[in-house]
């Protein structure tokens, strides 16, 4: 059979030689290994002070984007909920009333939009499915809680505040746009 790696060692119970039996050379060898590690760079990241750099396309807590004028982009089409393999997304649609044009971009909007963060598997399928560029996963970490219910995030947490925009430029690249617009793909036909 072909070996997967070249690291395997043939085990044997041959008698130890004298040098092996007095342990001392092996002990010195071991000590030389540990002392080199003593002076090596430490692998630790001192967490609260230092943070590990996230991947540019890290998939963390979701954001419901607003457009440039501060209107919610989401039209409650429900494609994200359909795409979600974990069935974490639920929503209730509502019709925009006259005078609410500055709040919602189109005639229909999500009155309730909830993501259960305990069900979510952070796959990003909702983001792929969204035709309105409304939902994105960000590099923010979902905060821990003592109870289960606070993990059902509503619009109060998910929609980005107008004065505190969430940067999603790393995920909303031109390649992503192409993917969403290209008619060659089945999902765009």
């Amino acid at each position: 059979m072909e070996k997967l790696t070249n690291r395997s060692v043939v085990a044997s119970d041959k008698k130890m030689t004298f040098m092996e039996r007095i342990y001392v050379p092996a002990i010195l060898k071991g000590m030389s290994i540990t002392i080199t590690h003593f002076f090596k760079k430490k692998a630790t990241i001192n967490y609260p002070e230092e943070k590990r750099e996230f991947s540019k396309v890290y998939r963390g807590q979701h954001v419901l984007k607003r457009d440039d004028e501060g209107r919610e982009r989401c039209t409650a089409c429900g494609l994200c909920a359909v795409a979600c393999p974990a069935e974490a997304i639920t929503m209730v649609a509502a019709e925009r009333k006259p005078g609410e044009e500055n709040l919602y971009r189109e005639e229909k909007y999500a009155a309730v939009y909830e993501i259960n963060m305990l069900r979510c598997i952070y796959c990003g399928d909702c983001e792929d499915a969204c035709p309105k560029e409304a939902i994105f996963l960000t590099d923010r970490i979902v905060a821990s809680q003592y109870e289960r219910m606070p993990f059902v995030y509503g619009k109060d947490i998910l929609v980005e505040p107008t004065d505190l925009r969430v940067d999603i430029s790393a995920r909303q690249t031109s390649a992503v746009h192409d993917f969403k617009k290209n008619k060659a793909f089945a999902h765009n036909r």
Partner: peptide, 13 residues
């Protein structure tokens, strides 16, 4: 500290 350093850690700090 010695244990930590030999295991590439920081130890109590």
């Amino acid at each position: 500290k010695v244990a930590a350093f030999m295991q590439d850690r920081n130890g109590p700090n």
